[in-house]
């Protein structure tokens, strides 16, 4: 434990803390939509912290360029998957627990989802 390196270990510890709270949030939040807040935001910054710590440990061009690529794709893909999960669950009719209005008002309208899939050629 003597070789504590602040530049390397603080990002890793912070990242591990956020990933842990993400896991706790996933269990404790009331419904899928609230849980997505924990899994999208906390996992993004948490894993970014761990990656940054590991990248700084090596501090070489090869490690840092891969770190940049990993971070870029992490930030691109996590919000997209959260978006798709929320949209699919809602349009297939998974009821959200709300304390406010539902201004979309399209719960269970799977036709919207199918139209969009046909538009983009998916299925």
């Amino acid at each position: 434990m003597n070789d504590f390196n602040a530049v390397r270990d603080i990002p890793i510890l912070l990242g591990a803390f956020f990933v842990l709270t993400a896991a706790i949030g996933l269990v404790r939040f009331p419904d899928l939509y609230s849980r997505l807040h924990a899994s999208s935001k906390l996992i993004t910054l948490g894993s970014a912290g761990i990656f940054i710590g590991v990248g700084l440990e090596f501090a070489q061009t090869e490690a840092l360029s891969r770190l940049a690529a990993v971070l870029l794709f992490q930030f691109l893909t996590t919000p997209l998957s959260a978006y798709l999960i929320a949209q699919a669950a809602y349009l297939r009719g998974l009821k959200p627990l709300l304390e406010g209005p539902d201004e979309w008002n399209a719960l269970g309208k799977a036709a919207l989802l199918d139209e969009r899939l046909e538009e983009t050629g998916g299925g």
Binding site: H37, S40, K41, L91, L112
Partner: peptide, 15 residues
């Protein structure tokens, strides 16, 4: 915008 909103405080883009 949708991707950014998902990472901002309190909001997740849905559609």
């Amino acid at each position: 915008l949708a991707a950014t909103i998902t990472l901002m405080p309190g909001s997740v883009a849905m559609g």
